[in-house]
Design a protein around this nucleic acid. Structure first.
Lengths: 193, 193
DNA sequence: ACCCTCTGTTGAGCAATGCTCAATAGCGTG
DNA sequence: CACGCTATTGAGCATTGCTCAACAGAGGGT
C-alpha cells in the first residue's frame, strides 16, 4: 500500500473513531488494530501521537469547510445566507461529530502554528468580509460573529426536532442580519449609546 | 491536615500548574510531588484523574465568575457594562490562564452533567437577561452573545499593548450595544432584511 | 539467476502514567 | 496504656506513547 493511501486510511479511521471518544483518548493500539497494522507503523507515518491528532482534526476541518462553502456564482449577502444555512445543516446532521471536532481542535490549541481550528473560522470570516465588502477594521467583529454563529448553531441543534425546524428560518435570518449589524460599527455604536 | 484543607491545597496546585500545561497532560505524580504527598493520596480524594480535573476547572470557573460579577447596587445596563469591562480585564491580565481554562473545560465537555464550563457562560447570560429585563425568548441570543464577547476578548487580548489600550473603550461600548441589538429580535430582523 | 538496495512493515522492549490495595502511622478517646 | 479510626503510604499492575533494530519483498543492475 502506497504511503499516501496509508495516510488517508489512518486519518480516515481517526475521523470515524473521533465521534465516540476524543482523539486524545484514542489509543494508538486501537487505531493500528482498526487499520490491521502494527503500532510501529503508525509512528512511522505520524512521528507523534499529537501529529496524528492534528492530521485528523485538520482533515475534519477541511471537510466542514467544504460542506459549508457556498455554490460557485452565489455572491454577496446570498452567499452569506447560504453559508449560514449550510453551517446549521452541518451541525444539525452530525452534532456529536461536530462537538467532537470542537473538542479536538481546542485540545490542540496549545503550540499550534497552523492551528487547524482556524480553518473553518478563518474561512467563514474571510468569506463574510469579502462578500459584504467589509473594511479591514470589521475583521475582528466578523470573527466574533463566527463564534456567535457556532454557539447559536450548537444550542439550536440540541433542541427537540419540532422546535428546531420551526425556528430554523428565523435563526438563519437573525444570524445573517447579525453579521451586518455587528460589523457596522457606527450604527451599532449610536444605536444604544 | 484536614480533608478539606487537603482538597483545597490539591485543587490550588492544579490551578497554578494549569497555566503551563493542560490539566489533562498533568501527571498525577507531579501534582502529588508538588503537594509533597504520595500518588495514592490523590486518588483517595479524587477517585479518578478526571474527577480531579473537573474539580480544578470548576474552581477556575468560580474564580472567573467572582472576578467578573458586578458590584452590589449596580444594575441595568451599567451592570452589563461592568461585567464586560471586568471580563476584558480578566482575559487581558491572565490570558494564558484563561486560554487554559477554555481548553480544560472543553476537554471535560464529554459526559459532564454539571459541566463546569457552563458556570461562567450561564452566569453572564443570566445576569444580562435579568439586568436588561429581556424576555425568555432572548436567552439563546444572550448566550450566543457571551460566546461573541469571549471571542472578541481573546482576539483583543492578543493585540500588542498599544492598540489594546487604545481600542478598549470602543470594544466595551461595542459589546454592550451588541447585546442589546442581538437580543432585540424585531429590530434586527427589520434592520437589514 | 543472484544479489543488493530501498522502503514499507514488524514486534520486542522501555519509561511514564493512571489506578488498586493491603499495610502503616499518628492522633484522639476510653 | 491500648484501641480504633482515618489520613497516608508505597509497592505493584496494566496500559500507553514511543524507540529501534531487524525483516520482507519488490524492483533493478550485472
Amino acid at each position: 500500500m502506497t504511503p499516501q493511501e496509508r495516510r488517508r486510511q489512518l486519518v480516515g479511521i481517526g475521523l470515524r473513531m473521533f465521534v465516540e471518544r476524543p482523539v486524545g483518548d484514542l489509543s494508538v493500539d486501537e487505531v493500528a488494530a482498526a487499520a490491521g497494522v502494527s503500532r510501529g507503523l503508525l509512528f512511522h507515518y505520524f512521528p507523534t501521537k499529537t501529529d496524528y491528532h492534528r492530521a485528523v482534526v485538520a482533515a475534519a476541518g477541511r471537510r466542514v469547510r467544504r460542506n459549508v462553502a457556498p455554490d460557485d456564482g452565489v455572491v454577496g449577502e446570498a452567499a452569506v445566507r447560504q453559508v449560514v444555512e449550510r453551517f446549521l445543516d452541518q451541525v444539525e446532521r452530525r452534532r456529536e461529530w461536530y462537538v467532537a471536532l470542537v473538542r479536538g481542535r481546542t485540545e490542540l490549541s496549545r503550540a499550534a502554528p497552523d492551528d487547524p481550528m482556524e480553518t473553518v473560522t478563518e474561512f467563514v470570516a474571510d468569506l463574510a468580509c469579502r462578500e459584504l465588502a467589509l473594511p479591514a477594521s470589521a475583521r475582528p467583529a466578523a470573527r466574533g460573529w463566527v463564534a456567535y454563529l457556532e454557539d447559536r448553531a450548537l444550542q439550536w441543534s440540541a433542541l427537540p426536532e419540532r422546535e428546531r425546524s420551526a425556528g430554523r428560518d428565523d435563526l438563519v435570518a437573525h444570524c445573517v442580519s447579525a453579521l451586518a449589524v455587528l460589523t457596522a460599527t457606527d450604527e451599532i455604536r449610536g444605536g444604544v449609546s
